[in-house]
Design a protein around this nucleic acid. Sequence first.
DNA 1: CGCGGTCTCGTACCCAGGTACGAACTCCGG
DNA 2: CCGGAGTTCGTACCTGGGTACGAGACCGCG
Lengths: 214, 214
Amino acid sequence: MPTRVLIADDQAMVRAGFRLILEGEPDIEVVGEAADGDQAVRLARELRPDVTLMDIRMPGVDGLRATELLAGPDVPDPLHVVMVTTFGLDENVHAALRAGACGFLLKDAGPNLLVEAVHAAAHGEALVSPAITTRLLAHFTRATSRPAPETPLTPRELDVVKAVARGATNDEICRSLVVSLPTVKTHIGAVKRKLGARNRTEIAIWAWESGLVH
Amino acid sequence: MPTRVLIADDQAMVRAGFRLILEGEPDIEVVGEAADGDQAVRLARELRPDVTLMDIRMPGVDGLRATELLAGPDVPDPLHVVMVTTFGLDENVHAALRAGACGFLLKDAGPNLLVEAVHAAAHGEALVSPAITTRLLAHFTRATSRPAPETPLTPRELDVVKAVARGATNDEICRSLVVSLPTVKTHIGAVKRKLGARNRTEIAIWAWESGLVH
DNA sequence: CGCGGTCTCGTACCCAGGTACGAACTCCGG
DNA sequence: CCGGAGTTCGTACCTGGGTACGAGACCGCG
């Protein structure tokens, strides 16, 4: 059985283009079109397509809200929504992922990627435009690797930093590491010097940025 | 001018398959093959291909180390490396991205994705297999979306939270928001109640987890 | 208009957090 | 064997953070 696709975009030319591309595939069937978010939600609920291609910017209810209604965290059986947009601004990407989208394509992505994204989404998997993936990965690696304090932290200091980054108080730390309170303060003082932090909150921030904790 | 590609995989059949797929494209040229990591590094340095397809598991120097040597953070002019593997274990993905790879494909990805990934990598952009992207996004959204304080924060409280998440002291906050110190304390008190935070560090952590700040 | 929520400010108090010393002990490498 | 680094602990002091009130001003809404 073919993959059933719903196209939601306010521009008729875009819808026609998508339909043309997708109907060239034997195992894809376009089951409907919507011109605004409201229509998209109603049609999607009625047709239950395997994949919904959703433009972000649409009159009335926009694609973001529509996606939330169809694939958001509170929806019982969420649909697979692939966001489509002309520009890949970061806020859009964040918001789209937050809303439950399982893909994010730029309109200049080319027919191949569109088809592949539909196939991936049909299996509940995600495909994202290369340009956006690049930024996503940058985000990911930036958030996952920032080592190098000029003078390295000692093992014990790392223990303290991790605890601070979890929001622990000095009292909790000294009990969890089985040392005295002055010891904890000593370590924290050393860490602050080494990292150039002015208070424990900045230590926690550093730990998060450097991927020491998740 | 065509995109010049180097293929590094210990299995000759896989190399042949890739070559067949890629040479079907008019604007892609396979300039070399390597059967292990050592060979891959030497060939890549000599040929300077636009894109290197690199298997993770290879005899001797593995794909991860080879990628580090070709695209790692300390390399002056890094090459574009796309990792290829049969299974997409998370540790591999992390390590590959850390090593400087700009793409990550599963071998069962299909010809289309392979071609698209090479095109993307040639432009310095990244394409990742849908199955892996799914997990990557899960990772991303898990780390980026934890909203829903039972009672929502007011705009002014959000201002304070952002400042706290930057590591600001109460004194700095009250000067940057042009209010008095007691006002800042009031807001922070309210935020702590709403978020169930025990101190300002936990507020900062919440802000980071919820994607309020980067 | 009256009500509720938000933002603002004040005063007062307490304690956790941070600073500044000094001083043991262990372990390791030159 | 000796020096340095790391870890531990102590005492004393000060500041910033957090709590607990109360209260006035503003604004939107029924």
